[in-house]
Structure formats: structure tokens, C-alpha cells
């Protein structure tokens, strides 16, 4: 991972990487994220597709079928993508720990 890969993920990328721990096609990602977040995160089709092609370029996810023209192309997270996701979870946990630490101290 390069230094650039340590920044915060956008919410769209976070949920796409999470959804792609199993192979899914675009529409299934959209629906899955919508259900999981109880419609708080509704990925726009343009946003989702832009993110998918960027993530493929970065090597964080890959398209499953060889036939690029295939309808309902499925994607899955690569090992690199999963590592990035794991690093992001650790970063988020650190944020929460710090917030609780400081706020907890102020409250008591």
C-alpha cells in the first residue's frame, strides 16, 4: 500500500468494498447497501459505476467474468482491497476510541 492509500475511504467506497467481500453485480451492490443502511445510503448509479471502475483500476476489486460485455458483470474484492478495508476499519476504530476517551474524561 502506498502512502496515498491510508486516507479515509468515501462512504460509497467503504460500502462497495464491504459488499464485495462476496461476488456481486452492480445492482445487487446498490440494493444490498440500501437494505443494510435502511435507505440512509442510496448509491446513485453514476456514483456506483464511477467508483467501480476506479476500484478496478486501483486493483482493489476485479470483474469476475472474462467476457467484458456480459450483462450483469460481477465484481469481487481483491486481497489488496480487503487489506485496505481492514486498515480503514482500524482507522475508524481509532477515531471512536479517541472520541470516547476525550469525551468520557470531560463528562466524568
Amino acid at each position: 500500500m502506498s502512502a496515498e492509500d491510508h486516507g479515509a475511504l468515501t462512504e460509497a467506497v467503504f460500502y462497495i468494498l464491504l459488499a464485495l467481500h462476496e461476488p456481486r453485480h452492480g445492482y445487487a451492490i446498490m440494493q444490498g447497501v440500501q437494505e443494510l443502511t435502511k435507505e440512509r445510503v442510496v448509491l446513485g448509479p453514476g456514483t456506483l459505476y464511477g467508483a467501480l471502475s476506479t476500484l478496478v483500476e486501483k486493483g482493489w476489486i476485479k470483474a469476475l467474468q472474462d467476457d467484458k460485455n456480459s450483462r450483469r458483470r460481477e465484481y469481487v474484492a481483491t486481497d489488496q482491497g480487503k487489506a485496505v478495508f481492514q486498515a480503514e476499519l482500524e482507522r475508524l476504530e481509532e477515531l471512536l476510541t479517541h472520541a470516547r476517551l476525550i469525551l468520557g474524561r470531560e463528562e466524568s
Binding site: 468515501t10 462512504e11 460509497a12 445510503v41 442510496v42 448509491l43 446513485g44 448509479p45 453514476g46 456514483t47 464511477g50 467508483a51
Partner: peptide, 15 residues
């Protein structure tokens, strides 16, 4: 239901 192509700033900026 609603129809927005872009749901975040990054993708609006890119467009």
C-alpha cells in the same frame, strides 16, 4: 422513488 445519478460530492465533481 427518487432518481439521482450521483450520491456524493466526489462523483459530482468528477462529472
Amino acid at each position: 422513488g427518487p432518481f439521482e445519478l450521483f450520491s456524493d460530492k466526489e462523483s459530482r465533481i468528477a462529472h
